[in-house]
């Protein structure tokens, strides 16, 4: 399969309510709150490349972007235990009609931040190898432009690399349709380990810290 570009515009949303579970002796409260990622295609029409200056539309200034097709994604903390690869449950649902922004509000979420991911995807058997860079809004340049333009918001806002050194993030993963499909999971595990050995020296693929991939929001403990 030919390589594909990666172009994703992501909103990170947090619940604006806090969860205060009723603490009862003998009852374990398993309910957690999750951050959600809301993602859309960072379309070419939405992308302006005057390297090094890259610009994109932001939902902060374009409420109408909410009418695009967006995918809501939630993830569990990666599975615990001694493992050779990281495995994490991801839940997602795609909104194909309607504005996602007011729905997020009624759902109980508010936008925390927004970022743009650009890069490439390569396919090796079932493995997806992703080389990406993350862009965030360049507030300094934006403020300066706003001053020059007499506070008229430009259609596309200036972006900057999150990691100014310009390095790419390399991620190798396999998407498995069902968490319960043990065979597929172990096959993916074997394939990933093979790739890791093959690429040793080129890229040193290592497992990320499990806590860094935790999508949950800390629960508030009710004071007695």
């Amino acid at each position: 399969m030919a390589p594909l570009p990666v172009r994703v515009h992501t909103l990170l949303a947090m619940p604006y309510l806090k969860y205060y579970p009723k603490v009862e002796p003998g009852k374990v409260n398993q309910i957690e709150m999750c951050k959600i990622r809301v993602q859309r295609e960072w379309t070419l029409a939405d992308w302006e490349d005057h390297t090094p200056q890259i610009r994109a539309r932001s939902v902060v200034h374009n409420e109408r972007l909410g009418n695009d097709v967006w995918t809501i994604q939630l993830s569990d903390i990666p599975l615990a235990g001694k493992r050779s690869t990281t495995s994490q449950a991801i839940y997602e649902s795609t909104i194909t009609s309607g504005n996602v922004l007011p729905y997020l509000t009624v759902l109980g979420y508010k936008m925390e931040t927004e970022f743009w991911v650009q890069g490439h995807r390569f396919f090796h058997n079932r493995i997806i190898i992703e080389l990406t860079r993350i862009f965030v809004a360049n507030t300094e340049t934006f403020q300066r432009e706003m001053g020059e333009r007499e506070n008229k918001t430009p259609e596309k806002i200036p972006l900057q690399l999150l990691d100014r050194s310009g390095q790419f993030l390399v991620r190798a993963y396999v998407n498995v349709a069902k968490m319960t499909d043990v065979d597929a999971l172990s096959r993916a595990n074997t394939e990933l380990l093979l790739l890791q050995a093959e690429l040793a020296g080129l890229f040193d693929l290592a497992m990320p810290d499990r806590m860094c991939m935790d999508g949950r929001v800390a629960t508030v403990q009710e004071k007695p």
Partner: peptide, 16 residues
């Protein structure tokens, strides 16, 4: 879901 949405990596294509 438009195919380009999945192609761009905005969704894994394995929706619930």
């Amino acid at each position: 879901v438009p195919a380009s949405h999945i192609m761009s990596n905005a969704s894994t294509g394995l929706s619930n």
